[in-house]
Design a protein around this nucleic acid. Structure first.
Lengths: 262, 262
DNA sequence: GCCTTGCAGTGTACGCCGTACATTACGGCG
DNA sequence: CGCCGTAATGTACGGCGTACACTGCAAGGC
């Protein structure tokens, strides 16, 4: 969309994000209600099914009425994102008060994983990264704090956090992909494979792929899409944690005990 | 969207993917040409701008003519993906003939990174993972082979590869996000920040976020969106590689020299 | 050489989308 | 009671994927 925002519009969007909402008009709908309806719809049907028309309908209001409260769908989505970010780290015990940075990062990963599973449409938001709402800021601070003072440079802290979140996001994406392709086709993995496998075997008969065949078989024996994604999430998390540990300690490092947090 | 494929349709799609194309009709257009036009369009304008209408226009043919050759846009996208996968590891020297698994994985990461930078629309494809075309299969085999025989279980091989690719994908996503938000607003990062910063400072005046402020400053001093994404890509890659190394060697491991590949 | 017939290609139409713009109608104030 | 600002609405535009009825061309039978 060629929606080039002017400078005042940018500032307006920011203020909106930080809670400067217009007063509810005579229909009684508020920005908060619109955002809530959007989140509900997106949770239930996905972001692509979350249209201004449907949100309006759900609130008993014409689609165009929403534009009195929210300048564009893009801004609405930003509000939705920051809204669900509010779910994270709500009990103050989480992530901050852990004993080691490892535990802290695992908390961070688990919290983000849970959020992405509860709200898979987050994966469809284009620039999650540059969202500057209040809850996003709090999230960023909370997560960075876990990595602070453990021996990483500022740049490495940022890159490590980004990488961790990318791993979580990727795993969540895989899981959703598995889950949705089951629901969309109405076939279980097994049924789907039963249809596809013979054709594929025929097509691939000329080439052979020894390693992927073997790995495919191994996976197939234990196959369960959901569990598979979760396992690759946990493995990925472990890889990143071990990587960070190696980054902290010089590679010829002494076999010392793990350092404590903050 | 509610496109539930029947079993024969599934098989047909697979055959199409593996090169069983219908003969070109009297307009002369072939599946290959359609796919090529789709890739060109997506490279230039993104996947959301890649519509059947525009592809038809580019080929001098009515939009509906495409459906004689390709059953749906979803299938077309699958063909496009497998087509660009053909670019990977084309010179046989790549990835396979490296001396160590570390070098091999770096090759894999770099190749995928390059592919995603050349064809950022790959990031918008829902189900990249379960694509079973010929080039995707070759890609999977090539990449798995790098991890084979270095002391990982089949499950850990798969999870490690998935994680590596997720890191690459995440970094590419971040880079595109930076790049596109610049182009879409017509503002450089600096200009954008100059508009946003004062408002944000005002809004955040009550709360304070010591760690993210400091890290933000550090990043700001060296700020360049593209370079930043690349740096976080390289750091992420290092983290995963170190993680895999730790996975191979038991955590109490002896300080032996790194094992050689395959 | 003509006619038939099957299918490649087309045009139209439907139901979606975000939202610009002109219009209506309502609540609060004088 | 009447005015007026503005919240809410209706209509419309240009886009999307694609179902479906149609046309017109090229190849095969006589």
């Amino acid at each position: 969309m060629g929606t080039e925002k002017t400078a005042p519009q940018l500032v307006h969007s920011l203020y909106l994000l930080w809670g400067h909402h217009p007063r509810p008009g005579r229909s009684g709908i508020s920005v908060t209600q619109i955002v809530q309806a959007g989140v509900d719809l997106a949770d239930a049907q996905g972001l692509e099914a979350t249209s201004m028309r449907k949100i309006g309908e759900q609130l008993g209001v014409s689609p165009m009425a929403l534009y009195t409260h929210v300048p564009s769908k893009e801004d609405l989505v930003a509000l939705m994102v920051d809204s669900v970010y509010g779910e994270l780290y709500s009990d103050k015990a989480n992530a901050t008060n852990t004993r080691t940075w490892r535990d802290g990062l695992q908390q961070v990963a688990m919290c983000n994983w849970g959020l992405l599973i509860r709200h898979p449409w987050l994966l469809d938001v284009y620039d999650l990264r540059s969202l500057l709402g209040p809850n996003a800021s709090r999230k960023y601070e909370t997560e960075l704090k876990v990595l602070d003072g453990i021996g990483l440079s500022d740049l490495d802290m940022e890159a490590s956090l980004t990488t961790l979140l990318n791993v979580v996001q990727g795993a969540a994406r895989d899981q959703r992909s598995d889950f949705e392709s089951e629901n969309r086709s109405g076939l279980t993995d097994t049924e789907w494979w039963a249809i596809v496998a013979p054709a594929l075997e025929h097509l691939m008969s000329e080439n052979d792929y020894p390693v992927s065949d073997r790995v495919g078989s191994t996976l197939g024996e234990l196959f369960d899409a959901a569990r598979d994604s979760q396992r690759s999430f946990h493995t990925g998390l472990e890889l990143v944690l071990a990587g960070i540990e190696a980054l902290i300690r010089p590679p010829d490092g002494s076999p010392a005990s793990p350092p404590s947090a903050s």
